[in-house]
Nucleic acid binder design. Sequence first.
DNA 1: CCGACTTTGTGCAAACGTTCACAAGGGCGT
DNA 2: ACGCCCTTGTGAACGTTTGCACAAAGTCGG
Lengths: 257, 257
Amino acid sequence: MSRRTRSGSSLPGIPEATIARLPLYLRALYALADRDVASVSSEELAAAAGVNSAKLRKDLSHLGSYGTRGVGYDVDYLIYQVSRELGLTQDWPVVIVGAGNLGRALANYGGFATRGFRVAAMLDCDPAVVGSVIAGHRVRSAEDIEQVVAESKAMIGAITVPAPAAQGICDRLVAAGVTSILNFAPLVLNVPDGVDVRKVDLSIELQILAFHAQRRSFVQVLHTERDAAGRNGQAGRPGRSLALNGDGPVSAKAVSS
Amino acid sequence: MSRRTRSGSSLPGIPEATIARLPLYLRALYALADRDVASVSSEELAAAAGVNSAKLRKDLSHLGSYGTRGVGYDVDYLIYQVSRELGLTQDWPVVIVGAGNLGRALANYGGFATRGFRVAAMLDCDPAVVGSVIAGHRVRSAEDIEQVVAESKAMIGAITVPAPAAQGICDRLVAAGVTSILNFAPLVLNVPDGVDVRKVDLSIELQILAFHAQRRSFVQVLHTERDAAGRNGQAGRPGRSLALNGDGPVSAKAVSS
DNA sequence: CCGACTTTGTGCAAACGTTCACAAGGGCGT
DNA sequence: ACGCCCTTGTGAACGTTTGCACAAAGTCGG
């Protein structure tokens, strides 16, 4: 519930997976435009965006037929169409709560101002930080959330405060009228229906990397082992055994299995 | 090619979607453990992680049968099993290249050291920053990438440099032996097969939020419009006209269709 | 004006992911 | 020891996403 409302209303209905890739295409398109490339084929654009060309064509076909057969896509025209679909032809004021390193990084982020987003205000709880100027914005007190949101008419809020404070800030943002939240705090936010939350979590990405790295190492170990006559036993589960105590070092219950 | 190697080797094969959620479960489990909860049902854990309980059970079943029917899961035991599956029972030194705000945020990130990851070194190109101390690490010169990677035996590298410098840094990290890369720079990195890249992109998340926000506004405007018969002029939050030129203001070719 | 060539847009099938619904299985009270 | 109740683990249905392969449609040289 509440999460990923999806097709709450049907409308045209562009697949979520496509939406998630449009920004990627957009970036590749801007890079092409910067190099004064006027036209691009699906093959080239797909390569630049790091996806399959059939996928790219299907994605773009959801927005309409903006290509020319035998030729490709007009870069500027496609930039406009994709931008419009994403809602980037309008201005989005964003309120950033939390002026720590992450908040600052966000405020200073290049691709921010350039593509329809604008830092409307920065807020922080720490009185030592309130009043200082970051990326051209005087940091305001988190006490004033409601007022700042009302003033700036921001619909988007970014939360870059420590985890324990995040839910409280979130509630106040929502109460003040924010309907889209970008959450950097490592916890699951509770929001009412109709509010959209997206998460950016450094730790999660690292853990996924670790999983693959571990798997890679393990395969390598298997190879080495096999080459060296070792029994591998345990063809089944990967991580298992292979070294460390094959079972949990922990707590009750571990006995069974 | 190169991207998301996926089942380069088959092995048992835990679905990628499941892997991506395990860190979420792990975090919820740690939160429970902190509150001295000993046992948890799939329903409760799913709620804490913000997912469907059937999904959670299926995910966990991929790692083995670690629950007890009629009771639930032992929190500590499950923490151990999930950690092991993710490879977090070992120590992962991470090299951070780029000591700007993002690099600092990463280095100071709480959930970093606590869960198997360790900042092995910070590097930067800027001579003014090299030598300073951030989060207890003396920043080293990016010239020394190869040496630093060799010294620390890091397999994971985080790239928090500006986009133009990212590919070069990436190449050097890979050449030095790094096989997992967490990329914060807004571009698609090219890496050889066998190297895993994950991306964290603030801008993309914002754009996805904007899309949904736009859609929401649009639906709302439609409603208001119908109810009030008149031109929208500022219905609800969105200031925008929404009507704007239905076609591109841009460049050649727009003529046709 | 025509025919060869190129590249888009899309029908279709397979892979993948999610959700339901329920049988299997374990604890607990009696 | 038995049976009730609870929750896991999973088969099966469903929806979404991917990728192939090709027809449709446009350009360009002659």
